[in-house]
């Protein structure tokens, strides 16, 4: 007897089900969008690596049937940096949460964007620390309640698209888990983009954020995502700040060209070395360079 196969079973570790996410959580949707994007993109999946830090979103690295590294809290990006530098033909995707990437790992986030190393960072922003039970984080809107802001949050949050755009990211987009087609396209574009790409995915945390702020069930959040989203490609990321109950600016804010870390490194070293520097770069990347 064969069990029914899900069409994405070859991309997911079905033997790890059930997953840890709560009913109504949006992380699973984001993960599904990622594997669909990868499937359609046609990159050799043996060469795709997912790196995460700590938190609910970080568990994705262990559910996808790819090389996955579930590293220490906040350190997914520098770990991914080492992987990519040591093996430049890997497609390296960082998939983690807003607390992991923008609070404890915030310094790595801006420096990776500055370097423009060819990484894709997917940041699921659920406005809260979910795994530890609902503490405020670097993206929690003003006045929102959390277990550590029992009287309401008075720390202004980061506007992540503005932060990474200002730091040098060449691709910056924001979508919600309601906008799945857009999200898949954004993931594909971000992965295909050479250089540091960043996709923020707004997502409901029914347990840690919605309930405490009396924002209803996850479905209410999805309705909110639908009703209050304004899609404006090319918008100034500085306008993308989020307030409680306010409108959500979505779209592809940044899509520019800038030499990547490897391009600059090779160019700089070529000035000093007679022979080309990057002997370890795979045939694939060399071919890409010829094309471009």
């Amino acid at each position: 007897m064969t069990e029914a196969q899900h069409p994405l079973d070859h991309l997911l570790r079905a033997d790890r089900l059930p997953h840890i996410w709560c009913p109504g959580c949006g992380i699973g949707i984001a993960m599904r969008c990622l594997v669909l994007a990868l499937e359609e993109l046609g990159r050799p999946l043996d060469r795709v690596v997912v790196v995460s830090g700590i938190g609910c979103s970080a568990r994705v690295a262990g559910y996808v049937r790819l090389d996955g590294f579930h590293t220490t809290h906040g350190r997914a990006i520098p770990f991914a940096t080492g992987l990519k530098l040591a093996k430049p033909d890997l497609t390296v995707i960082v998939f983690s949460g807003d607390g992991d990437l923008a609070a404890i790992g915030g310094n790595h986030l801006i420096h990776a964007a500055r370097r423009n190393l060819d990484l894709t960072v997917i940041c699921v922003n659920n406005f809260i620390y979910g795994m530890t039970g609902g503490q405020f984080g670097p993206t929690t809107p003003l006045s929102a309640r959390s277990t550590t802001t029992p009287y309401g949050n008075f720390e202004p949050p980061f506007n992540l698209p503005a932060l990474v755009a200002a730091s040098g990211a060449v691709y910056v987009a924001r979508w919600t888990v309601f906008h799945v087609r857009r999200l898949i396209t954004a993931f594909q574009e971000a992965i295909a983009k050479r250089g540091f790409s960043f996709v923020e995915v707004l997502s409901p945390c029914p347990t840690g954020y919605l309930r405490r702020n009396k924002l209803g069930e996850a479905l209410e959040m999805m309705r909110y995502f639908k009703a209050r989203s304004e899609i404006r490609h090319g918008a100034d990321p500085a306008e993308a700040g989020i307030e409680m109950g306010g409108k959500l600016l979505l779209g592809k804010f940044v899509d520019i060209q800038r030499p990547t870390y490897h391009e600059r490194m090779r160019e700089q070293l070529a000035r000093s070395f007679i022979e080309p520097y990057a002997e370890k770069v795979s045939e694939e990347i060399k071919a890409e360079e010829v094309e471009s």
Binding site: F79, A80, G82, L83, H111
Partner: peptide, 19 residues
């Protein structure tokens, strides 16, 4: 790297790349 935490992270990543 930007600090020593990142430095060791990158070293661990590179090692998992086989280097």
């Amino acid at each position: 790297m930007e600090d020593e935490i990142a430095s060791l992270s990158a070293v661990l990543g590179a090692s998992w790349a086989g280097v």
